[in-house]
Measured scan of single mutants.
Amino acid sequence: FDIYVVTADYLPLGAEQDAITLREGQYVEVLDAAHPLRWLVRTKPTKSSPSRQGWVSPAYLDRRL
Results as ranks from 00 to 15, higher is better:
20 I>M: 08
19 A>C: 07
43 T>E: 03
20 I>L: 12
20 I>T: 03
3 I>F: 09
40 L>G: 00
2 D>S: 10
56 V>I: 10
64 R>F: 15
55 W>R: 02
28 V>D: 00
47 K>A: 14
1 F>P: 10
11 L>W: 14
3 I>Q: 07
16 E>F: 08
26 Q>N: 05
46 T>Q: 07
46 T>I: 06
30 V>S: 01
18 D>L: 06
62 D>L: 11
28 V>L: 03
58 P>K: 04
24 E>H: 09
5 V>L: 09
49 S>G: 10
7 T>R: 10
2 D>G: 11
13 L>V: 12
29 E>Q: 10
51 S>T: 09
5 V>W: 07
9 D>M: 04
26 Q>I: 05
38 R>K: 11
29 E>C: 06
2 D>K: 11
22 L>W: 03
27 Y>I: 15
59 A>Q: 12
1 F>H: 11
58 P>M: 04
61 L>K: 00
34 A>H: 12
36 P>I: 05
11 L>V: 14
35 H>N: 15
8 A>V: 09
8 A>R: 14
4 Y>I: 02
2 D>Q: 13
4 Y>S: 01
48 S>D: 15
24 E>D: 04
13 L>S: 15
65 L>S: 14
62 D>W: 07
11 L>Q: 12
44 K>G: 06
39 W>E: 00
53 Q>H: 06
58 P>T: 05
52 R>I: 15
42 R>G: 02
10 Y>S: 03
64 R>Y: 15
4 Y>A: 07
31 L>A: 01
18 D>N: 08
25 G>R: 02
47 K>P: 13
26 Q>W: 10
29 E>T: 08
29 E>Y: 14
33 A>M: 14
61 L>S: 01
23 R>Q: 11
45 P>V: 05
24 E>Q: 14
12 P>M: 04
12 P>S: 08
6 V>I: 05
9 D>V: 04
14 G>K: 11
38 R>Y: 09
13 L>Q: 13
40 L>F: 10
2 D>I: 11
32 D>G: 02
47 K>T: 12
24 E>C: 09
8 A>H: 12
10 Y>G: 04
64 R>G: 11
16 E>Q: 09
18 D>V: 04
7 T>G: 04
65 L>T: 14
15 A>R: 02
18 D>Y: 09
35 H>T: 10
57 S>L: 05
47 K>L: 13
53 Q>L: 10
41 V>W: 01
20 I>V: 07
50 P>E: 09
1 F>M: 10
16 E>N: 09
24 E>N: 08
33 A>I: 06
54 G>P: 00
65 L>C: 09
59 A>G: 07
59 A>R: 09
34 A>L: 09
31 L>G: 01
21 T>D: 10
49 S>H: 12
57 S>W: 03
36 P>Y: 05
15 A>Q: 14
49 S>R: 09
54 G>C: 06
64 R>I: 15
64 R>T: 13
45 P>N: 06
45 P>F: 04
1 F>A: 09
53 Q>E: 13
34 A>Y: 08
4 Y>H: 03
18 D>T: 06
10 Y>Q: 03
39 W>T: 00
50 P>C: 05
23 R>H: 12
41 V>K: 01
59 A>V: 11
60 Y>L: 07
25 G>P: 01
12 P>T: 08
26 Q>Y: 03
57 S>R: 03
15 A>D: 15
27 Y>T: 09
46 T>A: 06
13 L>T: 15
61 L>I: 05
28 V>G: 00
11 L>A: 11
50 P>Q: 07
35 H>V: 04
27 Y>A: 05
43 T>S: 06
7 T>K: 11
26 Q>T: 12
54 G>T: 05
4 Y>D: 00
62 D>R: 13
38 R>P: 00
53 Q>A: 07
32 D>I: 09
32 D>P: 00
21 T>K: 09
38 R>S: 07
50 P>S: 06
40 L>Y: 11
37 L>R: 08
3 I>A: 05
3 I>H: 06
37 L>W: 10
54 G>K: 01
48 S>M: 12
